[in-house]
Design a protein around this nucleic acid. Structure first.
Lengths: 312, 312
DNA sequence: CAAGATAGTTGACAAAGTCAAGTATTTCGA
DNA sequence: TCGAAATACTTGACTTTGTCAACTATCTTG
């Protein structure tokens, strides 16, 4: 990348802002065709997406005036979308809880926004689209340095070729660290193969973490095979060399966020008692240990654990 | 660029929109600290930048309600920033002409916006900045396909290494097409060298046109050495292989736009009577031929022409 | 425990934007 | 060449959106 003059860059930056402001305007215009205003829609998004929504947090996230927000919430309450409940720890504040009706409203809004995004992206050629999205990621990382400055890694969804790395890393990692045998790698390979052949891109996803292009972690979120409305988190992996960067937390947070947006009511996961560093990550994300049972697998005596996180 | 799933891209796109909306909000917030609202500022920009501003064109460019705009213009008129004058060709419409005071207001606003853009860009490392701006260009080309779809070429400002191509193309081109001798190439080399050593990046600029990375044209806009407030357009060049694409028009339009934004009152240029395809471009941009005189240069008997475009 | 900070609510406004009806012209088609 | 339709605005009447400051009820801190 050659460098260029500041003045010329400033002009390009301003032009981009002009053009993009207009573009966003036309895109969100259609959004407004629901009964909700743009601000209301954004509040609804935060309500559905934040883990314990409070007025404060929402006002901060959206940069809204507290009074203005208060009125929006009151409107939502009257419309039966939200119920306010005095927060246990701080009775000045209220927990804002989406009702079933509120969740339905969000689902509608979300589907519409999703459709809109697809309408923009669909006509592009795959390579143009990849370039476009890549450019957005680049800008986002600059513009929103809160997390990403602290984050030496980047997250992205999977691409062809990633699954080999997933199997390889998991296989090698658990063999080295815990002495598991080849049946574990086989299991991983089967999970991965199933994912690739049957996954529903609208409700299931795999994230890959990279540091300077190197695959250093991953996680999968899929539908629970038996329980509708429940998601299953699988194959969370953080390379030993990339520990201590918050990578595991970031991967799990990504899953939880995704599950909320797509309306899952619960996430479960199965793990082993000896994987203690993972437990801290699950706890941090709000998961609870709900069941333990011993089993003999991968050439070892292990204790399996089931954890879960309720989202509503 | 590998392709990735539409659903994941849609999520990335939506996230970018959320993040960038907020970012634009905080950037333009400071902008609002003038006495003008954001909408007013944008209108002022169009008034200063369009060649013959009419309410219609501005409303279209900014996607504003005609009534709303009409009121803004009325306010501007009362404040002495604009005068309305019934358009000659169509007496339903008015030409909107910025007064000296209006131009001053724009200058203030523009300086402030420029400063703001620099504040954002300045702290970045040169390579990060280049990446950032590059990403914006990529997105812009997708989002605003009006021109760029019709345009097989891209415009950018100059980078190290470009000047060699400028000299080479000009030298070879005019020798081949018109039989000029080596003194012409020497002149170009001198102009270019002067530009590089002394140019003021805030008020002077060079644009390079590329087709698939190949240098196919260029133009320079510099301050007139003797007349303050006047800009000089120099070294407009379009590769013979790239004719008929509107490249020359685009390069000149870029110069004119730049000159307007930076408050030049006039652009002049010197050219030769035999370069007829260039004349059409200058005429199209509104330039008038103001002077002709014969001279002997580059081993030829030529007729030099001076053209000018008034901007106020 | 008092002083200050925080979370949220409310009233009073101002700013921003929309919609529809109206005027004066221009354009277009028979 | 005339009348209907379209265009370029303007204006009135309105809604939506957003801001500011004052106020209550709590919480935090020295």
């Amino acid at each position: 990348m050659p460098e260029s003059a500041l003045a010329a860059d400033a002009a390009a930056f301003r032009q981009f802002n002009r053009v993009y402001t207009r573009f966003i305007g036309t895109v969100t215009e259609r959004f407004l065709q629901t009964q909700y205003s743009l601000a209301e829609g954004r509040v609804l998004y935060e309500l559905a997406t934040q883990s314990q929504p409070r007025a404060k947090a929402i006002a901060e996230a959206l940069d809204l005036d507290a009074g203005y927000l208060s009125r929006i919430v009151t409107r939502f309450e009257k419309a039966g979308l939200v119920s306010r409940r005095a927060a246990k720890a701080d009775s000045r504040a209220s927990d804002l809880i989406l009702t079933a009706r509120g969740r339905a409203a969000f689902r509608t809004l979300n589907t519409r926004a999703e459709k809109q995004a697809r309408d923009v992206l669909e006509p592009m050629s795959p390579s143009a689209r990849a370039q476009f999205i890549g450019a957005m990621r680049t800008i986002e990382n600059v513009v929103q340095p809160r997390e990403s400055a602290l984050r030496p890694f980047t997250l992205r969804t999977h691409r062809p070729g990633d699954m080999g790395m997933v199997v390889g890393l998991e296989g090698a990692g658990y063999v080295e660290q815990f002495g598991w045998d080849g049946t574990f790698e086989a299991l991983v390979a089967r999970i991965v193969a199933d994912f690739l052949t049957t996954y529903d891109s609208a409700r299931e996803r795999c994230w890959i973490a990279e540091i300077q292009g190197r695959h250093v972690g991953h996680v999968f979120l899929v539908r629970h095979p038996d329980e509708p409305g429940t998601a299953k988190l699988r194959l969370l992996y953080v390379d030993p060399l990339a520990r201590g960067l918050g990578l595991g937390h970031a991967l799990v947070a990504e899953c939880v966020q995704f599950a909320r947006v797509y309306g899952y009511g619960r996430i479960t996961l199965w793990t082993q008692s000896i994987l203690q560093s993972a437990h801290r990550i699950y706890q941090g994300a709000g998961f609870r240990l709900v069941r333990e049972e011993p089993h003999h697998s991968f050439g070892q005596d292990l204790t399996g654990q089931t954890w879960e996180l309720k989202l509503n």
